[in-house]
């Protein structure tokens, strides 16, 4: 089974690396990630362009804030989700 790569940056701040997961996986995963996550900030790394629009929409619909969607390289983005 394919696993998610994730790290802890500091308390209540995690980074989930979904680079290599094509669209629509990030969009499908974010719902579960937000639910699983207590409180704090979750950074999702993605490399499919459409996720930069889809993921914030799903997160915002679940009541989270999305303070940044930043490009971190060619075809790679960091999406910050705050719950």
């Amino acid at each position: 089974m394919r696993e998610l790569n994730a790290i802890k940056i500091k308390d209540s701040h995690y980074e989930v690396d979904m680079r290599g997961w094509v669209c629509p996986y990030p969009k499908y995963a974010v719902e579960g990630l937000v639910r699983k996550f207590d409180k704090g900030r979750l950074d999702l790394l993605v490399d499919c362009p459409s996720a930069t629009e889809d993921v914030p929409k799903v997160a915002q619909a679940m009541g989270c804030a999305v303070p940044e969607v930043n490009q971190i390289g060619g075809g790679e983005w960091r999406i910050a989700i705050v719950k």
């Binding site: 089974m1 394919r2 790290i7 995690y14 995963a29 990630l33 699983k36 960091r78």
Partner: peptide
Amino acid sequence: LMKWQATRAVEALDFRALSVSAPAEKKSSS
């Protein structure tokens, strides 16, 4: 099928078990 796969991967993830490391760095312009 894709949704099931994504859900399985999320379920397997345990935030409490994660170790601390440095975040991915921003690459310079290309």
